[in-house]
Every structure is written in structure tokens, then in C-alpha cells.
């Protein structure tokens, strides 16, 4: 069964105690062992692949050398026939026949070795895929296990410290209040610095003998006198 399906079945099982691991430790050991076994098979396959490939190369070399020997002797036969030396030609032809027999055997061996190389190569690919699959599955299992254990540790810690017993809504409200407070402080700070700027401007104007007041006692008196 697909590992994710297995995990979901275990999670939905519901019979577990809180914090109990979804995957028992044995299952993980088995997974790890399977990966180890697959790696072992892969190494064996790789070793035999090099051996078989070496044999195939050797066989190919033998085939080539036999072909060359045959070709060379064929030239000799023609030469002998040209010189009417039938006996020598026959003798060489016998050798050629023996080489051809050997060539046939070597070619058949080479074909077999070539097929074997292909087979082992496909086995190696299969083993590599299988290792990658198992490793991915193990990772899923281990991650699920880690997250569960971490969650258990966190909830035990929260329970032990009696901290964070608030609901999410209460916590959210507290954050908002804090943020509002920070905003208010920033606004108040801004207003304060604006007021300070204003006061400093007034002081500078006064020092320069410029009054920023539109009215003073003297002007009020002058205005009232005019109305008499």
C-alpha cells in the first residue's frame, strides 16, 4: 500500500493514545533494513556488471582478432591458389575453418554477454529506483514521527508551564491590543514632537523680536479708545 495511505489509515485509526507514535519503531527499522538490503543488491549488481562488461570487451577483442586471422589466411589461400599450391591452400583453408568455428562460438558468447550487461543494467536502475522510493517513504514516516513527538513535547511543555492556555481568539485580541497600543504610542510621540517643534519656533520668533500674537494689551486698548 502507498505509504501516505498507510500513514492516513494509522492517523485516522483513532485508537491511539495521544502522542503515541503513528509508526512504531519496528516499522522504521524494517524500512531502514529494506533500504540497506536494496543497497547491498545494488552493489552486488554493480560489481557483477563490471565483471560481465569486462568479459564482453574481452570477447569482442577475441572476435576481432579471429576475424583478422581469418581475413589474413584467406589472402594466403588466394596467394597459394595463384601459385597452384593446392596442398598449401587446403592446409590454410582447414585452419580458416577451425577459426571460423571458434569465431562462431565467440560471437555467440559475446551476444550472450551483451544481453547479460543489458539485463544487469536494468536491474541496477530498478534497484536505484527502489532505494530512492524507500528513502522517500522512510523520510515521510520519520517526518510524521518527528512532528508528532515534537507536538507532544510542546503540549507537555505548555501544560507544565500553564502558559498559553488562551484560545486563538483571545491571543489574537491580545496581539491587536498590543499593536493598537504601539500605534497609539507612535501617534502620541508624533503629536508631542510636533508640539515641541511649534514651541521652539515661537521662541525663535520672540528672540528675533517678532511677535506671533495677533493681539496684545496695547492694541486692544488702542482699538477700544478709537471706538469712544
Amino acid at each position: 500500500m502507498n505509504i501516505l495511505k498507510q500513514l492516513m489509515t494509522a492517523i485516522r485509526g483513532g485508537a491511539r493514545e495521544i502522542g503515541e507514535s503513528v509508526i512504531d519503531a519496528n516499522a522504521m527499522v524494517i524500512y531502514e533494513q529494506e533500504i540497506e538490503d536494496a543497497r547491498h543488491h545494488l552493489n552486488t549488481a554493480r560489481e557483477s556488471l563490471t565483471e560481465v562488461m569486462a568479459s564482453e570487451m574481452q570477447s569482442r577483442r577475441t572476435v576481432k582478432s579471429l576475424e583478422e586471422k581469418i581475413h589474413e589466411r584467406e589472402v594466403y589461400v588466394v596467394e597459394a591458389l595463384k601459385k597452384d599450391n593446392e596442398a598449401l591452400a587446403l592446409h590454410i583453408a582447414e585452419k580458416i575453418a577451425a577459426f571460423e568455428e571458434e569465431l562462431k562460438q565467440q560471437q555467440s558468447a559475446q551476444r550472450k554477454l551483451h544481453a547479460q550487461v543489458n539485463l544487469i543494467k536494468s536491474q541496477v536502475r530498478k534497484a536505484e529506483r527502489s532505494i530512492a522510493d524507500h528513502e522517500r517513504e522512510l523520510l515521510m514516516v520519520k517526518t510524521t514521527d518527528s512532528v508528532q513527538k515534537a507536538t507532544l513535547a510542546v503540549s507537555e511543555n505548555i501544560a507544565a508551564n500553564h502558559s498559553n492556555l488562551n484560545t486563538a481568539r483571545q491571543s489574537l485580541d491580545r496581539i491587536r491590543r498590543k499593536q493598537q497600543m504601539t500605534d497609539d504610542q507612535l501617534t502620541a510621540g508624533g503629536q508631542l514632537s510636533a508640539a515641541e517643534d511649534d514651541r521652539s519656533l515661537q521662541a525663535q520668533l520672540a528672540a528675533a523680536g517678532i511677535s506671533t500674537k495677533n493681539s496684545n494689551s496695547a492694541s486692544v486698548l488702542a482699538r477700544l479708545k478709537k471706538s469712544l
Partner: peptide, 25 residues
């Protein structure tokens, strides 16, 4: 937070209500 799966609780300033928990696989 010690345990069979060690966890680190991190409170980010201003948002202490929702700590972040880090664990390594």
C-alpha cells in the same frame, strides 16, 4: 524544549502569543 524529539520554542517580539517551534529531522 528537551525530549526524544528536541524542539526550540521561539517567541518573536510583539507576537509572543504564537511562538514558532523548530524541530529538525
Amino acid at each position: 524544549i528537551p525530549g526524544s524529539q528536541p524542539v526550540l520554542q521561539i517567541e518573536v517580539s510583539g507576537q509572543e502569543e504564537f511562538p514558532i517551534y523548530i524541530t529538525l529531522t
